[in-house]
């Protein structure tokens, strides 16, 4: 499963996703500068990403807890998500995202 992730400098990275892992874990392991301070507990909004290429619409909508926590993120756009709340599966092959500013 491929993940296309753009870092804060605008460089594109192709990462290998893993079924059952969260997008945050793959981005963090890939060295894209995702802080994920709370470790994936939907409690800090420091794994904020923008889903691109229509992927926001393709995924199920964020939970109420995630929507609430996005209130604490900076630079929120309509395609904003917290990457710790996106659990990968094969249907997400090719998912594209941009890491939000710190």
């Amino acid at each position: 499963m491929k993940i296309i992730a753009k870092d804060r400098e605008g460089n594109e990275h192709e990462l290998e996703g893993r079924d059952g892992w969260t997008l945050m874990e793959i981005l963090r392991e890939g060295g894209l500068g995702v802080a994920a301070e709370c470790g994936g507990a939907c409690a800090c909004a420091t794994c904020h990403v923008y889903l691109t290429d229509g992927w926001y619409e393709k995924l199920p909508p964020p939970s109420e807890a995630e929507t609430d926590m996005l209130d604490m993120a900076l630079g929120v756009e309509p395609n904003s998500r917290l990457s710790c709340q996106i659990t990968l599966d094969e249907s997400m092959d090719g998912i594209a995202c941009t890491v939000a500013p710190e």
Binding site: D68, D71, V76, E77
Partner: peptide
Amino acid sequence: VHHRDGFR
């Protein structure tokens, strides 16, 4: 100002 018309 807030990015949505909903609040936590």
